[in-house]
Design a protein around this nucleic acid. Structure first.
Lengths: 207, 207
DNA sequence: ACGAAAAATGGTAGCTACTATCAAAAGGTA
DNA sequence: TACCTTTTGATAGTAGCTACCATTTTTCGT
């Protein structure tokens, strides 16, 4: 529940009205986030005030907080998680869970436009350098994992309290998070790290 | 770095002076935390102000923030992590890493006094019910895991950038976190869940 | 096309977590 | 006792965030 909206993505085909109102809202949201990220990289996260962001985006502070419940959410608002889950559940049933995750991650990240990819890179840089943002990232990660947990339970036809699935999903969360952090710290392609990590996971995480 | 102190624990034997000053400080710290947790459970976390806590503990707000850098830290200040690490590294070298973790966790949690255990229980209840606290808990968890990662690298004699170890530690983090959350949600003995989780992990997390 | 309903915006006021600074008090030491 | 160090409290200020209300803007029914 990091942010209660599901706005227009390039994936699911048109189940939402696209009147003038919606377009304006999307533009305002994008403007706020763009200026926020720009100011954060220019002068630092803490040194940038919400007032400055609102002014740059030409909206009032009231409006700012209507679009982003917290200052942190301008960085961490993640439109990718629900899309990932959707891709995951749409994988054919005979595909194993790890392979399904790989496919979903690839589908989503390969489908990113140049601007979206750049935005993602900026976000990642900010997230690792600001402790407050890291904390929220982890929460968001585990929130996404909770969704994935549900999807896996359904996929495997298990009960909610299945302990083995809980541990399995927990470990999977940890692997993905570790791969994510590694890719940011070491630099390089995120997808490659994810693939290597998931492959390790499939093999029982040999040391 | 959730909190920069290492105050007196029941473990390492006396390498610090115990003048009147130190005793007063310990009493003040305990008073603040006790009143904070009491007020949180009585009237809710958000509804309790730092002013109220300071007043109840009979200190000024200035003093409050000297002892706890943030309001969250009254709940999340974790003295257990460093102790856990210490127990872990002190395990004999021929013990496998999982067994060493099990031993360390048991040693620490079995050694808790009744009050400490009760405090821990209150903390756990608060942590799962308040989103802000959950976020910080995750950060603290991964911070502890980073320390564990270093310890494991040394134990195995691996290089820092060893990818297999990174993934392994990440998965281990996820399993412990999952066991932790499960024990709080389902109720029951934390140690039992940890043992079951770690055993699953050793077996390659079968589904 | 017009008017009403609904939604988005801006402005103001206010609360609270947190910081910075400095003088006063308490504790330690010779 | 006298001196030095540490701890405390008071004050003032910043910034994130909320609540509330009046105004504007978009949508929709007729």
């Amino acid at each position: 529940m990091s942010c209660g909206q599901n706005q227009g993505m390039t994936t699911s085909p048109a189940d939402k009205p696209v009147g003038l109102r919606e377009r304006k809202k999307a533009r305002t949201r994008a403007a706020i986030q763009d200026h926020a990220l720009r100011l954060f990289t220019e002068q630092g996260y803490a040194a940038t005030t919400v007032e400055q962001i609102a002014e740059a985006a030409e909206v009032s502070q009231s409006t700012f907080f209507r679009y982003f419940p917290t200052k942190e959410d301008t960085v961490l608002y993640d439109r990718l998680d629900p899309v990932l889950i959707e891709h995951f559940v749409n994988q054919p049933a005979d595909v194993g869970p790890i392979a399904a995750i790989k496919a979903a991650v690839h589908a989503v990240f390969r489908g990113l436009s140049a601007e979206e990819a750049e935005l993602e890179a900026v976000r990642q840089r900010l997230v690792i350098s600001v402790p407050d943002l890291r904390a929220k990232l982890f929460e968001q990660f585990t929130e996404g994992m909770r969704m994935l947990h549900d999807a896996i339970l359904r996929r495997l036809g298990r009960e909610r309290d299945d302990f083995a699935v809980r541990m399995w999903t927990g470990a999977l969360t940890g692997v993905i998070l570790a791969a994510y952090v590694t890719s940011i710290e070491e630099g390089g392609d995120f997808l490659e790290y994810i693939d290597r990590g998931l492959t390790q996971f499939e093999r029982g995480l040999p040391l």
